[in-house]
């Protein structure tokens, strides 16, 4: 908020925002009236201490959890409480905190799952059409695991599985991608690879929302940083401004 005032010259375009989003688990207000506006076409980062409600917020936006109150707006449409597959079809792709893939399916099939088809006849048509397989292979080349396309996904290393998950998300042609801890449990060289992929895709026009604890990655990658604490944003702005905000230092770094 202070940040927007400081860099007042930039006009913000947003396709995804939340108003008063709230989710209560028992006595815990995991997300507590969160008003968040993501910057379209930018890499947005969501940071905050563990338990600050980032993942719950994430799940409310993508429909995995139904919020108790508040709204989520995407491309001027209210998507609050819609089924996750409907939100995926609307154009939001997501990854999971601990990488989730389909362990006993081939790498190629893992990517093909995200193909969008409707109508009974096309659903009963063979899964592997030439155009879709070609596209899936291109994505596997892009993330660098194309030589493993016939391997079972469970045989891949953890880092390769993260890349596979990203390829699957890309297969759905999302214009907004939400990544939950893309660098978690990944060796530094692969973090660099994932980071540059995010930048490439962002340069092509994809909006990113990234929940991440790796501060170096967040600060080097993102254009806009939102700091969460106790279920709502407490500060936002460019990485430099957020890093020097005293509330952030107190909540997140414990200084």
């Amino acid at each position: 908020m202070t940040a927007t005032a400081a860099s007042g010259a930039t006009t913000t375009v947003s396709n995804l925002s939340t108003r008063g989003l709230t989710k209560v688990f028992g006595g815990v207000r995991a997300v507590d009236g969160a008003d968040v506006t993501f910057h379209e076409g930018k890499i947005n980062a969501l940071i905050g201490p563990n338990g600050s409600g980032k993942t719950t917020f994430f799940n409310c936006v993508t429909g995995m959890i139904k919020p108790d109150s508040g709204t989520v707006t995407f491309k001027d449409r209210d998507i609050t409480g819609k089924a996750p597959h409907a939100i995926a079809h609307a154009g939001i792709g997501r990854s999971f905190q601990l990488c989730r893939i389909f362990p006993r399916m081939s790498v190629l099939d893992n990517v093909l799952v995200a193909v969008r088809r409707t109508g009974i006849r096309s659903l009963l048509a063979p899964a592997r059409t030439e155009a879709e397989v070609t596209k899936a292979r291109q994505l596997l080349v892009r993330v660098g695991i194309d030589h493993l396309e016939n391997a079972e996904a469970r045989d891949l290393s953890y880092g390769q599985q993260k890349l596979l998950e990203l390829a699957g998300v890309l297969m759905g042609d999302p214009d907004t991608i939400m990544l939950d801890e893309p660098a978690g449990g990944v060796n530094p060289s692969l973090i660099g690879r994932i980071g540059s992929l995010v930048q490439e895709l962002n340069a092509e026009g994809t909006t990113f929302l990234i929940v991440e604890h790796n501060m170096d990655l967040v600060m080097s990658l993102s254009h806009h940083v939102i700091v969460f604490d106790r279920g709502r944003p407490i500060a936002e702005g460019t990485p430099d401004i957020v890093q020097s905000d005293p509330r952030v230092l107190e909540a997140y770094l414990g200084v």
Partner: peptide, 25 residues
């Protein structure tokens, strides 16, 4: 071998993930 079948198998492997990728599970 169908598109429907690959969706069903994805449900078997990880239902939430299949839903997040756009399968009306």
């Amino acid at each position: 071998r169908s598109r429907f079948g690959i969706g069903l198998k994805a449900i078997r492997e990880d239902e939430d993930k299949a839903e997040a990728l756009g399968i009306p599970t």
